[in-house]
């Protein structure tokens, strides 16, 4: 087990190294001149050249990457080209908002996803089941920006139950977290349904029913705990979807997290910020996957880590 974890951490480190390299190459190829951007339009050629020298942008590619990497290993993400702030600080100040949003979205998708999945499985093949499954399919077929705009239109503009955007109170959190959670709720409800149906078909469940145990008790005490585990174990993998989702959701709702930070940086080609957010997201995804794999043997003792 310890050996496995150590190996996985080494693997994770190599993956992050690869991500940093690919991102660096891609951003190196972007047809924009950061030095000119920082200096502004009216700057002289000399100023631009000075800035280029200062940032090391005149160095060959591999030296630039090496410098970035060495700084990164010391926890230095570099400075934003346009905001003139440390990227590490920018990300640290925005991360809590994104984490809050993601935590709320996990609650959303579990509450809706599991409830829908359980009801559908228990009432398998009924009209209710079919309706719920169609709804969950609509959930996974709707782009997040459409969900977001629809929520804003209905609940913020028409009904005025919630603020139209922004950050700060519990009220602000509801619509963005619902928007981020809808897609996941769709997937979870389908997984929950098929997992619970699997378990309900097992012999021990039939035995419990045959003993005369009330149906609800059979479902909630005997079937559900077993059916729930494989579904819950998927949360780690969700991180990847969230890391994509927050870019859209945060920009629709004006939520001051790292998704919005990334989107603004991309529009202004602020390379250090794009690098930083990509790496932090990749880190979260790799950790999420690792977590999912580590939980797996507890969920199903037949799985052995090797």
């Amino acid at each position: 087990m310890t050996g496995y974890i150590i190996r996985r951490f080494i693997q994770a480190f190599l993956i992050l190294l690869g991500v940093s390299f690919i991102t660096f190459v891609l951003l190196y190829l972007v047809p924009a001149d950061p030095a000119r951007q920082i200096a502004g339009r009216s700057a002289t050629a000399q100023t631009v050249a000075n800035i280029r020298e200062q940032l090391g942008l005149n160095l060959p590619f591999y030296e630039q990457y090496w410098r970035y990497l060495i700084n990164l290993l010391q926890g230095d993400f570099g400075r934003s080209y346009l905001q003139k702030t440390q990227v590490g600080e920018l990300i640290a100040s925005r991360l809590p908002a994104s984490l809050l949003l993601m935590a709320a979205a996990i609650v959303t998708e579990l509450v809706f996803g599991l409830a829908i999945g359980i009801i559908a499985a228990v009432r398998r093949n009924s009209i209710l089941d079919r309706t719920l499954m169609v709804i969950s399919f609509i959930g996974v077929s709707t782009p997040q920006f459409v969900v977001g705009i629809l929520m804003l239109y209905l609940f913020a503009v028409k009904l005025a139950w919630f603020p139209i955007g922004g950050y700060g109170t519990f009220q602000h959190l509801i619509l963005p977290s619902l928007t981020l959670g809808v897609l996941g709720a769709g997937w979870y409800s389908r997984m929950m349904r098929s997992s619970l149906i699997d378990v309900l078909n097992q012999d021990y469940v039939r035995t419990a029913s045959a003993k005369g145990m009330p149906r609800l008790r059979v479902i909630f005490r005997h079937a559900l705990p077993n059916a729930l585990l494989p579904v819950i174990a998927m949360i780690g993998i969700d991180i990847g979807f969230f890391m994509s989702g927050i870019v859209v959701v945060e920009s629709v709702f004006g939520w001051p997290g790292i998704g919005q930070l990334a989107w603004q940086a991309i529009q202004r080609i602020d390379i250090p910020i794009i690098m930083g957010v990509t790496l932090v997201s990749a880190c979260a995804i790799v950790l999420g996957n690792l977590l999912a794999d580590l939980i797996a043997p507890f969920v199903d003792p037949r799985i052995k880590l090797k």
């Binding site: 693997q11 993956i15 992050l16 690869g18 991500v19 690919i22 991102t23 891609l26 951003l27 190829l29 972007v30 047809p31 990847g240 890391m243 994509s244 989702g245 870019v247 859209v248 990334a262 989107w263 991309i266 080609i269 794009i274 957010v277 990509t278 997201s281 990749a282 995804i285 790799v286 996957n289």
Partner: peptide
């Protein structure tokens, strides 16, 4: 594995901007 660690949308956005 490496490609899986990229946030898909962020990668697409960077590529599209490129």
């Amino acid at each position: 594995d490496l490609m899986m660690a990229f946030p898909a949308l962020l990668l697409a956005i960077v590529l599209a901007a490129l």
